[in-house]
Design a protein around this nucleic acid. Sequence first.
DNA 1: ACAAAAGTGTTGCTACTACACCCATGG
DNA 2: CCATGGGTGTAGTAGCAACACTTTTGT
Lengths: 234, 234
Amino acid sequence: MNAIPSNYSNQIPFHIAIDFVIFGYDEEELKLLAAKRQSTDDHQQWSLIRGFLFKNEHLEQAAARIFKEIMGHSSAHLEQLHTYSNPDYESGTYIISVVYYAIIRLSDQNKKLPKDLDAKWFNLKEIQELIFDPENIIDKAIQDLQEHAKTIPIGITLLPDKFTLTQLQAMYEAILQKKLDRGNFRKNILSVELLEKLDEKDKTGSRKGAWYYSFNENKFNNLIDNGVLIKISL
Amino acid sequence: MNAIPSNYSNQIPFHIAIDFVIFGYDEEELKLLAAKRQSTDDHQQWSLIRGFLFKNEHLEQAAARIFKEIMGHSSAHLEQLHTYSNPDYESGTYIISVVYYAIIRLSDQNKKLPKDLDAKWFNLKEIQELIFDPENIIDKAIQDLQEHAKTIPIGITLLPDKFTLTQLQAMYEAILQKKLDRGNFRKNILSVELLEKLDEKDKTGSRKGAWYYSFNENKFNNLIDNGVLIKISL
DNA sequence: ACAAAAGTGTTGCTACTACACCCATGG
DNA sequence: CCATGGGTGTAGTAGCAACACTTTTGT
């Protein structure tokens, strides 16, 4: 049962694709990266970003490699979502697609994409109409992202090292796609005690100025290592 | 980017394995099915149940087929967990392993396993020591199962068509691995209004007798179809 | 002085926990 | 008549949502 059946080898030309749902956050709203398909069908011209697994490469390695090829750097949170057996029958071969999602900060450099890749950032409503997604992969990715966001650190990479609570709240609102109460948000997020108030204010947003905070990553990692699961109520 | 790279075809002999974490519930505790490995290493002699994907077969089809080959029937809730790139390098080929988990009722017939399959039911503590599981697949499966159990219907297949609330509670306690308060459990489970009290009592458990209940599957499916997510607090 | 965003405090409610308390009945 | 599990009621509380209120400062 455990061994590979005889005559199984080389009979099946599986191709292992890695598809990406890449979210981008630009201090305003959540965007999604899609690439133009090399397809003749006009109705299905946009698709998720895709790459292929190489021999002797782990899935996570391949995911990181492909992501870097697209974005030029590797600072993103990658998370495996699900595996599908036939999202695409191109050229008649059997493609297994392992879907990952990533979320990155849309700084100026990230907005530049490789020229050979015909891809574009869309807002979420826009893309749902343009993309061929019978499995609702995007919805699943959003749901998974929202769930994960409640364990704090995903979002941290979406903001500068120092940030105001208002910025942090805006980020959560973009991910969760709903407005949050200011007072309650502050109480909740500060009660976790992973944010540290700095001695500096951001005066660009208001007359009064908002205190900068930073995320204590060491403290967070210690908690994780000790098996403590942080949950913030949003 | 989207097309399969030229010269990619047939270069990589991937094997797509489907590994199963199969939970069994026998009205008492949660068990796990493991098979004897055909390995020379004594320390790693038990492993998850494994099968392989055939050509032109969907992942879900393959999972159902393999499950049926093992258990003799197909009445189980199957759920995809995660995909790993090298849980096993047997015979030097590259195995991609898609892990599913299933949970079934350990009735008398289910306890009988195919003779050609050298497998056994273990309790959870036991197996964690005997199995080679560097990725903590089993823990992940348990967590996922516990999370899913809160949306009710998984557990229903683990009980007869009519069951007492005490039986139901025992099932949840087995899955969640903790004791629940009787009064609170009843209030919660009945507040969902998917259980219907029958006119019959089970007198085997107590002098007083406990009312039988049945699960209203139609009502549940209607709710699901309308996008209503049921959550019970346990 | 006032607008506008930052930050704090208060109130009411919901839902959960942890029990205590009855009920029915076979022996 | 009492032991045993079935079934119900309730007080106390933690945590949340909603909203009002205060603070600061550039113009």
